[in-house]
Design a protein around this nucleic acid. Structure first.
Lengths: 142, 142
DNA sequence: TTTATCTTTGAAGTCACTACAAATACAAAA
DNA sequence: TTTTGTATTTGTAGTGACTTCAAAGATAAA
C-alpha cells in the first residue's frame, strides 16, 4: 500500500523500456498503490477526475503494454473481467463468493511450494501458475 | 474418452435432478466424450449437425444448469472464454501458449496436495481451488 | 524549423454472453 | 380425450468488456 514517488515510478517504467508519459505514470502509480487487482474500468473511473482527457482505449493499451513488458501481470479470476496486478511476487488469490473481494495470499518464505501439485508431463515446461481459491472470507462467514 | 450409453447419460442427469431432454443428453454426452474443456461455441458448432434446431441460448442455459446442479464445472483459463469440464475429479490444468491446447493434470493418488500453497487467513473457508499452469507443451517446445 | 515517430483519443465495431417473449413439448387433472 | 398448467427450447435483440482504426496531439531527432 506504500505510495511511490513519481521519480520512482518513472525509473521503474524506464527499467522496463517504457517511456513514461503522464498517463502511464498515473496508471502504474494507481496499480502500485491500490493492490486490489482492479479492472480497466475501475482504473478509468478512479483516474478520470485527475486526468480528465483520459480515454478508456489508453487504459487498455497501457495495461496491455505493461503486461507485454512484464511490468504487471494479468489476473484471471472471474470470466468477463480481466484484472491487473502490479505485485509480481509469487502469490495466490482468494475470491470471496459473497462480497466479491479478491485477497492476496502470500506464501511463507517468498517462493510458492508447488511440489504437491500434479507433475507436468514429460517435455512440458511451465512459465507461470495461476492459483485461485474461492470461498467465503471471514467477514462473510457468520 | 469412453463413450457413455444414452441410458447412462440419462441416469447421471436424473441423479442431479435434471430432466433429460434430447438437448441436455446431447450436450452432456458431448462433454463426457470430449474432455477438452470446450467452450459453448464449440459445443454448438459440433452438435448443430446432429440437432439442427439447437440454439446457442439453449447451449448456454443448459451449461449454466449443469453448473448449478454441480454436474459439470466451469474452467476459467483465458479471459473471454468460459470452458466447461464434465470431469469433476480433482485436477489442475495446463494451457500451451503456442498451440492453445488445454491439458488435464491429474495428481498421483486421487487428491491434490495443496499443503505447500499459502494458508488461508483466519476465518476464511475455501470451496474450490483453480490451478492453471501456462507454458509450452512437449510438441511445441522444440 | 522540419520531419519523423510516439502516444492519446473517441467513435464505431466485435464478440461472448444474457434477457426476453413467443413457440413448442410434456405432464397432470378433469 | 380434452383441458390446463409447467418445462423447455428457440430466435431476436440487447449488454458490456474489449479492440480497431484513423485522426489529432505530443515528443524527439535531424
Amino acid at each position: 500500500m506504500k505510495e511511490l514517488s513519481e521519480s520512482e515510478l518513472i525509473a521503474l517504467l524506464r527499467s522496463c523500456g517504457i517511456s513514461p508519459s503522464p498517463q502511464r505514470i498515473a496508471i502504474y502509480g494507481y496499480l502500485k498503490s491500490h493492490p486490489v487487482h482492479p479492472t480497466a474500468d475501475v482504473i478509468m473511473k478512479e483516474l478520470k477526475p485527475h486526468l480528465p482527457t483520459l480515454s478508456l482505449t489508453t487504459v487498455y493499451n497501457t495495461l496491455k503494454l505493461f503486461v507485454s513488458k512484464k511490468l504487471v501481470s494479468e489476473v484471471i479470476i472471474e470470466d468477463g473481467e480481466l484484472r491487473f496486478d502490479a505485485d509480481l511476487k509469487d502469490h495466490a488469490h482468494f475470491k470471496c463468493t459473497r462480497c466479491q473481494q479478491v485477497f492476496d495470499l502470500f506464501p511463507e518464505g517468498n517462493r510458492m511450494d508447488i511440489s504437491g501439485l500434479p507433475a507436468l508431463p514429460e517435455g512440458f515446461s511451465a512459465e507461470s501458475v495461476h492459483i485461485c481459491f474461492r470461498g467465503k472470507c471471514s467477514s462473510c462467514r457468520e
